[in-house]
Design a protein around this nucleic acid. Sequence first.
DNA 1: AAATGGTTTAACCAAACGGTCAAATGTACT
DNA 2: AGTACATTTGACCGTTTGGTTAAACCATTT
Lengths: 209, 209
Amino acid sequence: MENITHNTENRILEAARDVFHRKGFNGARMQEIANLANINKSLLHYYFRNKELLFEKVFNDTFSQLASKMGGIFMSEMTLISKIETFVELYLIFISEHSYVMQFIINALQDRPERLRDIITNQNINPELLLEKIHKQLKNEMGIDMDPLQLYVNLLALVIFPVVAKPLLQSIFSLSDERMAVFYEERKKIVPVFIENALKGYEKDKKLG
Amino acid sequence: MENITHNTENRILEAARDVFHRKGFNGARMQEIANLANINKSLLHYYFRNKELLFEKVFNDTFSQLASKMGGIFMSEMTLISKIETFVELYLIFISEHSYVMQFIINALQDRPERLRDIITNQNINPELLLEKIHKQLKNEMGIDMDPLQLYVNLLALVIFPVVAKPLLQSIFSLSDERMAVFYEERKKIVPVFIENALKGYEKDKKLG
DNA sequence: AAATGGTTTAACCAAACGGTCAAATGTACT
DNA sequence: AGTACATTTGACCGTTTGGTTAAACCATTT
């Protein structure tokens, strides 16, 4: 008897996602995944052959989910400023709730960069189109001729880094969990303003130059 | 006969640093470290007891080296703007050359945040003092009353993230190594301007508000 | 109820791993 | 040369780990 697209398989995937996200490929144990899913270890191999393939499945699922969230906002029809504000708001919430996800992706790609090659084309996301759209909006809405990649990376950096580096920042500056929560909450306001100001300054420079 | 502070011990530490930086604690193999150092595996245990202690030594050394580089600039006597420019310039070079280091630190702290507790006090770096200094300079030199932590984290984010996320960015946007090198080179100019503009805008808001 | 085929389990395996140990080698001092 | 001590080595050990296998279980079909 099968529940929604096979119950056992899903239980395994959920457990695997949890363990892989927290401990990475090398830190994860097949036995731990089996325990978490409340099944016999052999079932992992029955459904996914081996650790590498199970990891690959988790990685692909995770990345796709993340990518669609990332691309979606910027492919919509809003002003660039609104997109930035929405992006910061939504992303900061999402990443705080899934603080492991981003680092999981980065580490997996550090180990083997070719992991992405295959799935990016399969995805309905078009990074070049995204940059093109940002480029046009920068020009049309703000009169700025700037490399859109630089802007987009700045945006990602300001949102993602503070979450990924949380333990580092918290240790160095002796910040309590409460102080840290306030810090993130503040960023929802600060980051968009920071970027908008930077762009306005750039715009002024351009007009002067 | 002993060279500069014991030759064998240093060879081990260099090899261990290399392997741990690239593969992390779980991915590293004692045998691989021994091979790289051209010594018998037992010597690792003779000098450092076990894997955990060897890792700890590498982590502490790496962090101290990094921290002194980080703190140094901002404790010096320059204008805030100059500090930011110097920081971006120096850090972007350093991190590009040691792209694994930052992620190594972040991952090690993700696994066990308490690693830093001990060594931060031993270091002659004072994070609170650093923030205080930035805070004063923001006020005195630019008339801005801003949380210095937010500014400092923004700076770190803009410099560190693009390097840590290199494989991610390179895959997503199909960037060649050459394009990537140009991208980083561009950032040496773009990031300081980006931050300065953002601050100027903030300054203006303050005066209006 | 017997047969069929997918699912689950326990027992097991070989390789890899961190770590130990006793012997060997080198070095400095008497 | 001989002793004492630190250094280095190879052989070995117990455990953990990813993976296999054969048997048991279970639902559906005939």
